[in-house]
């Protein structure tokens, strides 16, 4: 009898206490990274897809429910999610994932940020006091974020220390090799002049030394009016850029118009994991982005 009970308990244990760390990732890149670093020890939910603008997400009931059950929230931070995450946090009734708790992780805060405004004025559009939040497009920064995130996973799930450490090591080795490879592949992109839709390629450009000469949005988060478009066209006509870059989630109307007038190509990059059919992992995201750029700028 007692033996049967023990057997039943042993059988049930993996179901009752799966030990899985439930992770709420604000964006797909952090879902992918957490999955890569956590393996079977984590179950990851992504609050947004690559086709959604992470600045403007509705604080939907389903997201409140998901965050309510999470052990860890992995978000970009630097105010990217200021329009929806604070509300989700409050409504989630989840002590574990509140700001400054171990269960709350902000990726952008782990690395040096660019574009920190010296003056904070809403007349300048949707500015972020903590700097530009789109840090994931620099694989060197991503590596540092991975290290910090792995530490955090260990802190929350100490039993998995060996596995997390092993997975991080694996990621680091792989990533170091890829970065060198990407950098050499991307050599022809250096100093090429590009125009972007929104200021979300800052880190990407810095990494690849692409020269961003303009943004289509007159101010961050402000859609361009017809007059803005004409003004930009005039400015750029003297010395046209070679390419316009868009993120998969962005509206391409203004970019197409400008590209047509300047007779230059528009490239829609995946921006994050899931941004197109090829970009199904972080590695594939960078592979694909470089391939698209090299193809468009190929001489």
């Amino acid at each position: 009898m007692r033996q049967t009970l023990i057997i039943i308990i042993t059988l049930l244990t993996p179901i009752l206490a799966r030990g899985e760390l439930s992770v709420f990732a604000c964006e797909p890149e952090w879902a992918a990274l957490t999955q890569q670093l956590g393996g079977d020890r984590v179950s990851v939910f992504s609050a947004t897809t690559a086709m959604q603008d992470p600045h403007h997400v509705e604080a939907r009931p389903s997201l409140i429910a998901r965050l309510g059950r999470a052990d860890l929230a992995v978000c970009t931070g630097a105010e990217l999610e200021v329009g929806w995450l604070p509300l989700l946090l409050r409504r989630s009734a989840n002590a574990k994932v509140q700001m400054h708790q171990p269960g709350y992780f902000e990726a952008a805060m782990q690395v040096e940020r660019l574009g920190i405004p010296t003056v904070l004025d809403r007349a300048d559009g949707d500015v972020h006091a903590a700097g530009n939040p789109h840090v994931h497009l620099d694989p060197r920064r991503l590596l540092r974020i991975a290290e910090a995130l792995s530490q955090r996973l260990i802190e929350l799930d100490p039993a998995g220390r060996t596995e997390y450490a092993g997975r991080l090591q694996q990621f680091q080795d792989h990533w170091h090799a890829r970065i060198s490879q990407w950098e050499s592949e991307a050599a022809p992109l250096r100093n090429r002049r590009i125009v972007v839709q929104h200021e979300d390629w800052l880190y990407f450009n810095e990494w690849l030394q692409l020269e961003q000469v303009a943004t289509i949005e007159p101010k961050p988060g402000v859609p361009p009016s017809a007059a803005d478009q004409k003004r930009l066209l005039q400015t750029l006509s003297a010395q046209p850029p070679e390419l316009i870059i868009l993120a998969a989630y962005q509206d391409d109307k203004a970019a197409r118009w400008l590209a047509d007038k300047l007779n230059i190509p528009v490239v829609t990059l995946p921006f994050t994991v899931g941004g197109d059919e090829h970009s199904n992992s972080l590695t594939a995201l960078f592979d694909r982005s470089l391939a698209l750029l090299l193809q468009a700028l190929g001489d």
Binding site: A78, E79, V82, M99, M109, A129, A130, G131
Partner: peptide, 13 residues
């Protein structure tokens, strides 16, 4: 708060 910008944290600067 404008003066005390340290460029840190999110949502509650």
């Amino acid at each position: 708060s404008a003066l005390a910008q340290t460029g840190y944290v999110s949502g509650n600067e």
